[in-house]
Design a binder for these strands. Structure first.
Lengths: 207, 207
DNA sequence: GTCTATACTACGATAGAC
DNA sequence: GTCTATCGTAGTATAGAC
């Protein structure tokens, strides 16, 4: 399917080079087609970019949607131990996402987009990201009912930050770990430590 | 000074729009000068970009250099309690940096640069960022001598990640906190929680 | 639907006047 | 040092053939 090929190529190019850096000519060229195909199928560069955002939202759903769907509205029924396991699982899934080479392009797209959010960010946030944050907040409410709501929200963002850094500051992380790249060994350590930190934080302030 | 004005404007534009998105014409225009001034003073767009990197490294030094300088080589002499206070102070300084509106432009520059690191990233990393990471690793070694070196390195990156997320995913953080922007109230909570999390993590696994 | 042609704009670099 | 003028290149958009 030409449209899908263009979409995948565009996400890769936008992710690598940013909106302005990527060119429709080059994207079309990589798909062995003419630039005007993009106009025809997506209405232009801007339209292509927004379609990329929708596609990314769909991919996040594919990958994390199961977890979020299982949670949908059930957070309130869980006991603290169940909620804890679910949240740890969610955090690990996000960490794996940030470490997965296959997701590099579109996570880069997303990180770039957050630097100056446009309509594309709205689509992704409203599509799935917001749900992932809200689910985590609800789970944390079961784990730490003592904590004020606004602190729980802050805590969720900080927990996600530990995963995000693995992609957003990849260049610093590889150097900081004195590694050439994040291989299986580094990946394993980082995932274990994110989990351990989260568990420690869940217990924080509680006897 | 025209050169400094161009530099400040360029950091802002590169930060907001990325390397390709920013244009030398526009940067010159914002400084009420001709585009060829950039050629004259910096040798071209690429030269200007690298000068921005050096300027950013200098600004990080201004702001965090004191902390790093005080630490220079003294980490080994400290006892665990001193090291703990120093590292908490360093983390808070970085968190404040990520929250400070004045640093928005150049932190954006840095986040963008990490998406596909060039020579500009080398200059900043070798200039100051590497030192900040290594200092933190040495401090953590005093606090958690039981922890293997490679885990300490990973832990430092995760701790920094909690601060980084405040800038790199600002759009998600403000929405996640249900805030319009990160004001004094949110800033205070986030800084307190980063500190509390770090303290908890320092104790993690220790009785 | 997909291609070729072309129009139009904006960019970075550079030469030369002052 | 700073400016104007110009060149070549590369971008998006669009019209029209097939």
């Amino acid at each position: 399917m030409l449209q899908e090929k263009i979409l995948a190529t565009a996400i890769s190019q936008f992710g690598k080079q940013g909106y302005d850096g990527a060119s429709t000519r080059q994207i079309a060229g990589l798909c062995d087609t003419a630039m005007s195909s993009i106009t025809y199928h997506f209405g232009g560069k801007q339209g292509l970019y927004l379609s990329c955002a929708d596609h990314i939202a769909a991919r996040i759903s594919e990958r994390l949607g199961d977890i979020a769907a299982q949670l949908q509205g059930r957070e309130a029924e869980m006991d603290a131990a169940q909620a804890r396991e679910r949240l740890l699982h969610l955090l690990d899934a996000i960490a794996r996402l940030m470490l997965d080479p296959d997701s590099e392009d579109w996570v880069c797209f997303l990180v770039r987009e957050q630097q100056n959010p446009s309509e594309a960010f709205d689509r992704i946030y409203n599509g799935v990201m917001g749900n992932l944050i809200e689910s985590a907040v609800l789970l944390l409410a079961r784990i730490r009912p003592d904590m004020p709501e606004h602190e729980r929200r802050a805590q969720v963002m900080l927990l996600y930050g530990q995963a995000l850094v693995l992609r957003a500051a990849r260049a610093s992380v590889t150097r900081g770990l004195r590694a050439e790249r994040l291989g299986d060994a580094e990946t394993g350590i980082l995932r274990r430590m994110i989990r351990a930190n989260a568990e420690t934080i869940f217990n924080g302030g509680m006897p």
